[in-house]
Amino acid sequence: MKRFLRDNGLTLFFLGAFLLSLLGQALAGQARYNEQQLTDGGDPIPLLSYVGSSDFAVDVAENWQSEYLQFLLFIVVTVWLVQRGSPESKRIKDIGDESEEQQQMGAYAHEESPGWARGYGWRRSVYANSLGLVMGLIFVLSWLGQSVAGTAAYNAERLSRLQDPVSWGQYLGSAEFWSRTFQNWQSEMLAVASMVVLSIYLRQRASPESKPVGEAHATTGEEN
């Protein structure tokens, strides 16, 4: 058990932090929602009803889609774009898809390589891009979820303001949808840009996200 916890500590820590944060969002969101309900002459709702509401769903989904977009872009764009001196970047000479030997695939696969990396054809192509594909799929589904829950929440708000509801297509073209989307995207892009640049000059001792403390600023990627 101890060994399991040690070997999976990173995943367990972030899963736990995720669940606690989601609970915090649900509790704070319910309190805010009920405050508004009382102001409008309505009735407060229990936590479970709030968690099942479109208001909660759109708030959750809009953050999820932006996080998965951030990681999708970071995973895919770093194949072709580099940053000299950043440990988040690969080496300048490795720009692009890299050789099969470097990627240990096909004829260069070894005994412990995953089965689909040893094979040929579509399986190898799919497996070689599976991380980006799955992150991309989760991004698209989260964004779709944001648009669907957003339509429902926006329409409830419009009806409460004595305005006609809109269709999903109209919502996709609305300022509300794009405001929610861009306000999340901008923060994700800033965070990645900061991480890439700050890690050139700053260090975090023993973190795999940092170069060793004494490494030169000019060292890029895995040279360190």
Partner: peptide, 23 residues
């Protein structure tokens, strides 16, 4: 009739009405 959350709109031949769902 359009129902979204606790809000509804009923369009009739001669009027349009807005409703809210209370306890």
């Amino acid at each position: 009739v359009a129902v979204w959350g606790d809000e509804a709109q009923v369009r009739m031949a001669g009027d349009t009405v807005f409703l809210h769902r209370y306890a």
